[in-house]
Structure formats: structure tokens, C-alpha cells
């Protein structure tokens, strides 16, 4: 996982839950099929128009609900670069770190708009809005997770810990 991510913004509101990101009725299908339905309950265009490297910016409580990692799987399938939100639901936050999907908290994401080009520095917790020429303060990655993020998530981290190449 890279510590600096730059991409175009998809902007959403509060409580984007896991049933919206990864609807239950498609969870038993292969990831490419699941990914076609990502976010469709609130945005029918997302799965059709999202581009690799795009970032999601949202309000409070992003990823609430289920522990389903299919939520991360579909976002990674679409090659989402990072998610910036006012706050995250805890299981979603943890899962994202574990699978190498960058997540950053920022107190007020309302200053960022759909289509803005932003750059996120995970280690410094800085967010630069290139479209608006602004810079915002986000949260830094917690120290105990830096190593895990550096190697790309929990699986490679465990491989290293267990001495498996």
C-alpha cells in the first residue's frame, strides 16, 4: 500500500453502510458480479463510471453495519485509492487496514466536492485538494498499524511474522 494517494473524488453523505456498498443479495456471487452492484442503492452510476485510483469522500459513520469484507473487496475491485470520511464504523476501519485499503478520518469533509482531485498522505495525515488549492488536516495512521500498512495488509504482515515467504 502506498502512503501517498492521489485521485478524483466520489462524494457521499453519512452512514454509507455495508448493505449499500455490498448488497447482501449478491454476496454469494464472484467479486466482479458483486462489484457491478456496489453503491447502487444510492448511486446507479458509481459502478459504471468509477475509474482506477478514484477516491471516496463521505460524512459520518462510513461502513456501518456488517463485518462483510466483500465491501472492501468490491471497492478494491474498482481500484478505489482511498476513503476519506468524518468517521468510520469500527469493523469497516479495521477490515480496510487489514486488506490494504487506505482509510483516513477528517473532521469536516464537507469542504471537498464531487470531482475534486485530492492527494492524501497517510503518514502525515495531510489531505491536499488540488482542484481548490486547499490543504486539510486528517488523522495520521495509528502507529501500531504503520508496519502492517507498509507491507500491504494483514496477510503479508502475518507472512513476515510467521516467517513464510
Amino acid at each position: 500500500m502506498s502512503f501517498v494517494i492521489r485521485g478524483r473524488v466520489w462524494k457521499y453523505g453519512d452512514n454509507i453502510n455495508t448493505d449499500i456498498i455490498s448488497p447482501g443479495q449478491y454476496m454469494s456471487y464472484p467479486v466482479e458480479k458483486q462489484a457491478e452492484h456496489a453503491m447502487e442503492a444510492i448511486d446507479a452510476e458509481f459502478a459504471k463510471k468509477v475509474q482506477p485510483g478514484d477516491v471516496i469522500v463521505a460524512g459520518n459513520n462510513f461502513g456501518s453495519g456488517s463485518s462483510r469484507e466483500t465491501a472492501q473487496m468490491v471497492l478494491k475491485y474498482h481500484k478505489i485509492g482511498a476513503i476519506v470520511a468524518n468517521s468510520f464504523a469500527r469493523i469497516f476501519y479495521r477490515n480496510s487496514i487489514n486488506v490494504g485499503l487506505p482509510v483516513v478520518e477528517m473532521i469536516d469533509t464537507s469542504v471537498i466536492e464531487e470531482g475534486d482531485e485530492i492527494e492524501i498522505n497517510l503518514l502525515e495525515g495531510k489531505i491536499i485538494n488540488h482542484t481548490k488549492g486547499e490543504e486539510y488536516e486528517g488523522t495520521k495512521l495509528p502507529e501500531h498499524l504503520i508496519e502492517m500498512v507498509k507491507v500491504g495488509g494483514l496477510e503479508p504482515y502475518l507472512a513476515k511474522k510467521l516467517g513464510i515467504s
Binding site: 463485518s67 462483510r68 472492501q72 479495521r94 477490515n95 486488506v99 496477510e155 502475518l158 510467521l162
Partner: peptide
């Protein structure tokens, strides 16, 4: 008792 993701479960199952 709390929920975790599938990747985290891999670590739990192993260690």
C-alpha cells in the same frame, strides 16, 4: 464478543 473481517480471521485461525 465482537465482529471481525475474514482477513483478520485468517490471523486468528493461525495464531
Amino acid at each position: 464478543a465482537t465482529g471481525i473481517g475474514s482477513t483478520e480471521m485468517i490471523g486468528v485461525l493461525l495464531t
